[in-house]
Design a protein around this nucleic acid. Structure first.
Lengths: 141, 141
DNA sequence: ACTTGACCTGTGTCTTACACATAGGTGTAA
DNA sequence: TTACACCTATGTGTAAGACACAGGTCAAGT
């Protein structure tokens, strides 16, 4: 099947299919008559694997490493286990970062409720963000 | 003060200071004798604002917009309120995405505990990721 | 004076996973 | 023939810096 057909079948985009083709993750057969790419069943299966791994947050590079192992006939399972562990750690970090930022933003919004809008001065751009600013006068520029 | 001194004072990197200079967020004075950039007190204050807004997740573009308003003498506070609201919404999304992915990864690791490592076949790259695969034989490639 | 190390400069590239853009070609139905 | 949908290869943009390169300046030490 052709690019768009494969993309629709796999519930992804033609751009994604073309990108993975471009970087060598999947390989089509070229129709010699019109230059069009044709993807068979095996590639569909491979793409299914790629998309599943992407869903789990695996990077394209990580997926490439897995595929290299598998293409050599080796079991890629230990590598997959390693990567998924790493992904979990990274995701935990992102989760914590998002949690922290969410808190900060909520606090900021809450505090700013009772503050008026102010015009900027030479010492202040927006007091909401700058908080309490002590004007000491300019030293040297 | 010079790049590295300002960076150290503001607890950021010289690369960040140079980057913000490059994109026009902050403007140094050039020493005509050696071409070095010198940053005064006002720039330090401005950088303080920028770094605080970055801490709140404001994008550099958003910060630029705020500074443009303030530089015109207008109050940027309404814009800041708008952006922080938007940031909160985006952060909420990221938080949810991280939560979901974390769950997925934990589930995957848990499920995979009891599964052996397998060598890839023509129909399977890694069964851990692919889950239950029904071999139906190749159609056409 | 020379050397060394720390800092400086302007400019360009890299990172990630696509989405988008360009300039054309192919197929098919009206 | 036209219009539309799809195709191609190739290049660029996205975001916020970090890094790279090729050189210049400064100051202390030898």
């Amino acid at each position: 099947m052709r690019v768009t057909e494969l993309a629709n079948t796999m519930n992804t985009t033609a751009d994604t299919v073309r990108y993975y083709t471009r970087i060598g993750l999947i390989s089509p057969v070229k129709n010699p008559e019109n230059g069009y790419k044709t993807y068979g069943q095996a590639v569909q299966q491979r793409l299914k694997f790629i998309l599943s791994a992407r869903q789990l947050g695996f990077s394209v590079d990580e997926i490439k490493d897995i595929l290299v192992e598998a293409d050599k006939g080796h079991t890629a399972c230990p590598l997959v286990r390693e990567i998924v562990q790493h992904r979990l750690e990274e995701t935990e970090k992102q989760f914590q970062a998002a949690l922290l930022l969410r808190e900060k933003l909520r606090n900021a919004i809450s505090e700013w409720q009772s503050k008026p809008d102010k015009v900027p001065t030479g010492h202040m751009i927006c007091h909401l963000i700058e908080g309490n600013v002590h004007h000491k006068g300019d030293n040297n520029e």
